[in-house]
Write a protein that binds this DNA or RNA. Structure first.
Lengths: 139, 139
DNA sequence: TTTGAGATTAAAGTTAACTCTAAGTCGAAT
DNA sequence: ATTCGACTTAGAGTTAACTTTAATCTCAAA
């Protein structure tokens, strides 16, 4: 129950640079140091890192994550703010998933188009044709 | 069939700065200019912008998008590269959606936890307790 | 015909999130 | 005793993707 910065880097996939940077930015406020001044990460620090990863990968900027940590440190008086933050993040993730699914449909279409085009050696030949003006995306 | 940069900005939500920047970066190679040197965007340019948006919002860097456009300009000899690009992007989007869904579960948990905590005015009181050591994330 | 919104360019500035460098410290192993 | 790898700090450098500035030009409307 006590990890060096290098061990945490290996565990999390973050670089030691990044871990120090996060601490400097207020994302890991309570990392202990031993008598020699070396950081000693606790299991609680690792759990914070997991939460940080979750928020970061769902698009929250480091500033927002830092705000959450400040609210946490401020105690129960900031429970409503934290609830609202997670509710908003939830809405954002739902919207992002929906957007990705829309984009996926477009990409799927292109995969099929190009698969056909590769088979017959020409993109033009596999583009759907319209009678009047050509509304087709030629790419 | 011919739009000013301001009209395109309003249509797409991109700024005129961004549109000029994209052109400079090779993302819009064939934008016409009128006799006075003003850009005149075509419907084809707008369609390219839609494709750019799709690739950008699924996490492709501008360099990658530019590569696609260069392959397009090079003609049918690059069909396999373009197919591979879309296949990889498809895999990436699928992975990103899966990751977001995992993160969403964690965020949903927090929303519920904080909803309870707000109701009873304390986070500690609503944290699930374990018998031996406490493995609970206290935040 | 003048005025004002909107266009042009090249180049500099901004922001987020790292990423690295330099100069030094510490503890274990040769 | 010294060498090695991992650590420390402050601060500088990097990258992507814009964003703004400055000085000038175009064009439609009053």
């Amino acid at each position: 129950m006590g990890y060096s910065i290098g061990q945490v880097a290996r565990k999390t996939g973050l670089s030691t640079y990044t871990l120090r940077f996060y601490e400097k930015e207020g994302l890991l406020p309570n990392v202990r140091k031993n008598s020699a001044g070396l950081r000693v990460f606790s299991d609680a620090d690792l759990q914070w890192l997991q939460m940080i990863e979750c928020l970061k990968e769902t698009g929250m900027p480091l500033k927002g994550i830092r705000q959450y940590i400040e609210w946490f440190d401020a105690g129960d008086s900031t429970l409503p703010q934290r609830l609202e933050m997670f509710q908003k993040q939830r809405e954002k993730v739902l919207a992002d998933i929906a957007a990705l699914q829309k984009h996926l449909a477009k990409i799927d279409y292109k995969v099929n188009l190009y698969a056909k085009a590769v088979r017959c050696g020409s993109l033009q030949k596999v583009l759907p044709q319209t009678k009047g003006q050509d509304i087709t995306q030629g790419f």
